[in-house]
Design a protein around this nucleic acid. Sequence first.
DNA 1: CAATCGTCCTGCGGGC
DNA 2: TGCCCGCAGGACGATT
Length: 268
Amino acid sequence: MPELPEVETLVQQLKRRLVGKKIVEVKIVNSKVVDNKIKKIVPVKVIGVRRRAKSIIIELEKGQFLLVHLRMSGHFHYIPKGKTIEADYQRFIVAEFKLSDGSILTHNSIRMFGSMKLVSKKHLDLALERLGPEPLSREFSLSQFKEMISRKKKANVKTVLLDQQFIAGIGNIYAQEALYHAGIDPRRKLGELSTLEVEKLYKEMRRVLVLAIKKKGTTIESYLHIEGVGGFQKHLAVYHCQKCPRGHRLKNLKLGGRSTYYCSKCQK
DNA sequence: CAATCGTCCTGCGGGC
DNA sequence: TGCCCGCAGGACGATT
């Protein structure tokens, strides 16, 4: 489930492999996931690659952008010139991009949930305008977080962390991890959190995200980055775990329709 | 205003 | 053993 750290990892890796090259050929296998219009604009040069929330933005010449959302199971595979696509990566290909240096980028998706759209600057801005702040941006201060929390007193803390309009890029893994490390029960209402707890949540949320980026994300089930598997799954405290780091048996409940692991002893 | 539900999709695990 | 049901998950709109 690519969330902020997984998408950030992919963006850094894609940037190194795509920027300055041209996409010379496109093969679209699943046009429900990948916009057919991309075929009409090749050859086209890649200007930049960046991230906003869980979206990858590939900037092309002439004010065109590829807006990519991987949802749960999307990934990329890069094949240098002269190599062939390994059998593992031939499965679930939704699109293939041939680059000007002879390399190939495949976009794969198991669940076919994601999307890759060709958009103008205007449509890009429109698609991203409702997103909340980036938790790791310099502008996202503790005082801003406190102010945001004070505006939604009745909402529960875990659901709000998953709300992309509230804060952008956090998903089911990192919401649960941040809450565990902050010692906060996921069912708590925002209005009940003490100043100290809000500060702890702010700090732990950012710490967990930074560490997860350093480890190139969490590989559980299908996530892969371009160079292999992530490493953060070794650091998970609660997500998909039986016991917390202090050895307590974890509880699981549904919150906002999502499975939620937490420790009733460590999280109050 | 907050929470829940349905929708999109397919691999896989559980149960019979 | 084999098959079928239902769950999982992110975003978004509609509904409660």
